[in-house]
Each structure stands twice: as structure tokens, then as C-alpha cells.
Design a binder for these strands. Structure first.
Lengths: 342, 342
DNA sequence: AAAAATATTGTTAACGTTAACATAAGGTTT
DNA sequence: AAACCTTATGTTAACGTTAACAATATTTTT
């Protein structure tokens, strides 16, 4: 490997000080036009590549954002990442991507590593298995800006960007109720995760509002993965027929896909035997054997806004901590058994 | 923001030298057990977070890998990234993710930025619009390890990890021929990109091998996006009926989805009017209105292997440059019109 | 032409860490 | 007890850059 070219070498080459070269390369401060041209020419000639590591050390700033997501293969997250990347790019930040794979330990470690790498800020969507938040608190107390998105953490003094999970869950549950379903179950996410809890609350609220009794047995602790939905639905199908629900509200689309698989596998029909709705409008939702009624989340927009907020926090320590809520939309397809009146 | 805790502060606190503290924290070298415990305790007490930026500067190593991908929303890439992340994680590397959005300029800039950030290596899948490769050559000549994956660049002395695009394209084209189609068109990717060229070559080879004449009009310059496939197919559909192809080999699944849309939109049937095949087994392929016959690529595995190879290059400058080729599998669904004999 | 203002360049130290070498303390061998 | 290991710790310099201040050259003002 060639010896790397440094500012010093450029300086020696043209017989000037390092500072002058630095100034020329950064186009700041007062500097003679000719000098600058000479520096730039020499830099090019020698194949100079600036060393951001050294620069970061001096300036205490890396222009890097850490992004921690729980599951990159859910179509929601790549969309979010696209939004994140785009805004970051415009503001000259790069992103370090870490994948917690829904695992608390990995998430903790990722946070620590990213803090060590001195990212300027952190964007986190909480892993499913996370039950305590000391690790967030820790970095926050060190002054590292953090924005919590999608699966948020509240009350630790950070901005959050999400949709109104409770309201959306209420709406989609109510949609089932309006169609006429009365016995409705919820494949719930872990309540330690914001969206798990909020969607469950929304589900309950819809029942209450419509004066339906809440059957605790119809709240099935599940998870965010397809396999979770599958297993939970299998459990429901083991109930005697009269004790089974007729409508299913899954905590998200992957779980709904799993439930759909379980239902169809046992020879039941959707929506004739079971009405099913999901949450998040996964890219596959409209393509499933029975197209899935779901809630559309503005993933790309969410990524953009979370990043804008984070950069605002990074660049202005007085930036207000906010809970930002983005609008959703219910997408009615056939899995809920709704007959359009047209 | 709290003043950041440094090795020096720990050293002062316990009245020892920075070097001793450094040794204790890194668990290397000779050090008294008691001293080490004291250091660790003090580090914890003060809330010490090691500064990798400084460490990177000294050790000329960042434990960071740059990953540049052209389109994060194609389901292929998130899978690849999952593989990359996993292997990187195991070897204690982080990944900086950059999105070229199929744009040459962005790709160039990303490479330069990542080189400046002193990533230890680079993993690149070439953007669609890339026509020259100086920017690869440049970093390579600076001694920065690079592994080219999926959409590869050859003859610049870097390892490549891909599937056998030519053979796979030949196989899937031949599959159409075997079913009985003779007038087959190819929605081609840009030939400046490896997979564009290789898949086109495979297509041609299949025709030749089976003694079909190659109609140059049936090679439609297209692209990797759904819109590209849609537009190209629309063009084909404008041809008088007798001049139209009966089979369509799309350069990848998104392009095939676009073509499918165009075909169905005009009231034609698949496979009755047009047989259609794609490439890459996008997550949606099996769920489409007409399930798509395609080539399955081991995306996750590809990410893993590319990363293993890159880390090998990083950690051993004598590591052999290789062209690694992974196996594919043809996935026959209904869009090709194949009737299984069972 | 002296004084003042401006433009340009240079010097020193710092960012936080570790490599390489140096020293000291204690234990062993002969 | 002199010579020699070991083990533990310390010192100095370096990684590549820029901030803060200092100095000099040039231009403008009076």
C-alpha cells in the first residue's frame, strides 16, 4: 500500500505551512487565490484523500449517524432507511447501520459501540425483546442526541417520531366491528414495546367504545414476526368452535401473514371464516392470497422526519424535544370481509 | 453536555499513568490484576466511553466497512445487507451504508466520502448508470480493499462475488424454449453493468444453442426498475400482432413486474398470450397476480460471503483475489406456462 | 510617510489514544 | 550478592488534522 498523502506532504511540496494547506482545502478563512489553486493542484497531483478520522478527533464531530433497526427484512424498514439516508445525505452525514435482530443484548451492544465510534446522533427503533431502557438513558445522559422512531421510548427526554398507533389500531378494529364482527381477537406484540402496548390499547378502546365485552382470552401474546402470528393463530384454532373469535386484529402485517397461513392451512376461508387485518401495509399485503386490510404507515416520510429532527438536535442543543405523530390511512382490502357499496 | 471522560481522567483519579489505564482497558500486555480491577471500576464510576476515533487514528484502522448499494427497496438488497451485517458483526466491524440510488455521481461521491472516513474496506454493487470505473480504480490503487458483489466490475484486480448470471439467464431462457416458445424477447438491463451484459449474453446463448434466430428488435434496452419493464413492454405491445414476441425474459423481477402490469393492463393473459420470466426471486414474485417464474439468488449468502472475503482482504493483504460464484436455482411458477407433469 | 486596517501566512498546542522504548521493582539463579 | 529474568509501570512521540493566537506582508487611510 502506498504511503498515505497528508497535509504535511502537500505543505512540504509547495513550501508552505500545514495551516495554509488546511485552509486552502477547506475553502474557509482568508487565503490567497493563487495559493489555494496551487494547493488544490498539488493535492490532486499527489492523490490526497482527506482524513476524516483526524478531523473528527479535532472537531469532536464525525458527521455520522447511528441507525439501529430491529429487522431489516420487514419491508417497512428499508423504506424508512431510504428516507433516513436521503436526509442524512443532504446534510452530509453518513449512516452506520446496526441490526439488533430484535435482540436486547445486540441493541445494547450496538448503542455502546456507536457511542464509542462517536456518532453525532442515534436513531433507534426498539427491538422486540427490550424490557428496560437504561441503555438509552445512559447515552442520553452523556449528551448524545437520540431520536426514537416507530417503536418509541417515552419519558426519557428524547424526541419521538411515530404514527398514532393507538388511534390507528382503534380505527382498524372499529372497522371490523362496523362490518359486524363481535368476537374479535388481538394477536398482540410485547407490551414492553411502544407499538405493542399502544396497538393493544387501541384495540381495547375500540371494543369499549362499541360496548363489546373484552375477552381476555382473545388477547394472544404474540410477536412481530410471521412465525409469531402463525403460532398464535394455531393456538386460537385449537379452541372449540364456539369459543373462537371471528375477527383477528394482528399487531402487524408479518404476524397477519403468519395467521393467514395458519388459517388457510387448516382449510378455513378468509374472510368467510375469519376476518383478518394487519398493520403497516407491508409490500406483500396487497399481493397475498387474500389481500390484507391494513394500516398504511408513511415509512419513507417517517425516516425523513426522524432524521431531520435528529440533525436539528445535533446542530442545535436547544432544539425542542417533541413527540411527532404522522398520519396513517386505513387500506381496505378483502381480508376484512368488507363489501364496498359501489 | 457533560465533559467527556478520557483515559487521562481515569489515570489521574487513580494516580497512575495513561498507559497503564490503556493497558487495563484493553486487557492486553502485562498488568497487575488489582490495578486492572481498579481501573475498570473507576472507568465505570466515571462513565467512561472509549473513543474509537482516537484509537482509529493511532491504529490506522476503523473497524468500519463501507457498503454501497444501488436500490435498497428491491427485496434482494435488504437480504444481502442482513448477511453483510451479520458477518461484519461477528468480526467486530460496523457498516456504513450508502445508497447510490442507481446514480453514478452519487456512487462516486460515496466512494470518496467513505475513503475519507477511512473505512477498512468497501463492498459495492454498481449503480445502473455507471459507465466508467476510474473511481473504483482510484481507491484500489490507494490500497483500499474492495469487493464487488452482485453487479460486479471485473479486471480491476478486486474479488467479486456473484451468481453465474450468464448461465442462469441461459437456463431460464432455455426453459421457455423447452416449453415451446420460439419468439422470445429480452427486456435488457444496461450492458455497462455486469449483470445487464451477462444476462443478455445468456439469453443470446440459449437462442443460439437451440438454433433460434436472434431478432435484434427483440432485445429491448430497459432497466432494473419496475417502470423500465413497464415502458419496454408497452413498446413491445405496440408492435403489430404478428411481429410480437410470445415469451419475455426480463432482466430482473422488478422489470418483470412492470411488464406484467403492462400486459394485464391491456387485457392480455399470462401465460396464454405472453409467457414471462424474471430474475432474482423478489419477495413479491410468488405473490403476483400471475406468480412469476424466476431465478432464485442466495442473497443472504451472497452478503455473507462477500463480507467474509472483504474481511479476509482487509486482514491479510496477501489474500487471493477471486471471482466467487454462487449457485442459483430456477423457480418455476405459472407465468412461464409450464405444465408440471404431475 | 506614519498609522491603521486588512489580507495572508505561520506557530503552537490540542483532540484521545496507543506503540515503542525505558525504567523500576521484585524474584531467581548461581 | 552479583547477574539475570519477570512483571509492572512510566515516558515520549506519534496518528493527521484544525483552533487559537501570533506574526508578517500588503494595502489603505490620513
Amino acid at each position: 500500500m502506498k504511503k498515505r498523502v497528508t497535509v504535511k506532504q502537500i505543505a512540504d511540496e509547495i513550501g508552505m505551512s500545514m495551516m495554509t494547506v488546511s485552509r486552502a482545502l477547506n475553502e474557509n478563512g482568508n487565503i490567497n487565490k493563487k495559493t489555494r489553486e496551487k494547493v488544490l493542484k498539488t493535492a490532486k497531483k499527489l492523490g490526497y484523500i482527506p482524513n476524516f478520522v483526524a478531523k473528527s478527533l479535532v472537531q469532536q464531530k464525525t458527521f455520522t449517524i447511528g441507525v439501529i433497526i430491529p429487522e431489516i427484512t420487514h419491508s417497512f424498514f428499508p423504506e424508512v432507511i431510504r428516507g433516513i439516508e436521503e436526509v442524512a445525505y443532504q446534510s452530509k452525514y453518513q449512516i452506520i447501520l446496526a441490526h439488533s435482530a430484535e435482540d436486547q443484548q445486540k441493541e445494547k451492544l450496538a448503542i455502546r459501540t456507536l457511542a464509542s465510534k462517536r456518532v453525532d446522533g442515534l436513531l433507534i427503533s426498539t427491538a422486540q425483546s427490550v424490557t428496560e431502557f437504561d441503555h438509552y438513558q445512559e447515552v442520553v445522559s452523556h449528551g448524545l442526541p437520540l431520536v426514537s422512531f416507530d417503536r418509541c421510548v417515552y419519558d426519557i427526554g428524547v424526541s419521538t417520531v411515530s404514527i398514532d398507533d393507538e388511534l390507528s389500531a382503534e380505527q382498524i378494529t372499529e372497522h371490523l366491528i362496523k362490518i359486524g364482527y363481535k368476537k374479535i381477537a388481538h394477536l398482540a406484540g410485547p407490551v414492553t414495546v411502544s407499538i405493542g402496548k399502544k396497538r393493544l390499547n387501541g384495540f381495547k378502546k375500540a371494543l369499549k367504545k362499541n360496548k363489546l365485552v373484552l375477552n381476555e382470552d382473545f388477547i394472544i401474546p404474540s410477536g412481530f414476526q410471521e412465525a409469531d402470528g402463525y403460532n398464535s393463530m394455531k393456538k386460537l384454532l385449537k379452541l372449540p368452535k364456539t369459543k373462537r373469535p371471528r375477527g383477528i386484529v394482528a399487531v402487524n402485517d408479518p404476524a397477519a401473514f403468519g395467521a393467514m397461513k395458519a388459517i388457510l392451512e387448516e382449510g378455513y376461508k378468509i374472510p368467510e371464516d375469519f376476518a383478518l387485518v394487519g398493520f403497516s401495509d407491508d409490500i406483500r399485503a396487497e399481493l397475498m392470497e387474500v389481500p390484507l386490510t391494513t394500516i398504511r404507515q408513511p415509512a419513507y416520510e417517517l425516516g425523513r422526519i426522524a432524521t431531520q429532527k435528529l440533525i436539528a438536535h445535533i446542530e442545535n442543543s436547544k432544539e425542542k424535544v417533541e413527540e411527532i405523530i404522522l398520519p396513517t390511512e386505513i387500506v381496505v382490502r378483502s381480508s376484512c370481509g368488507f363489501k364496498s357499496s359501489s
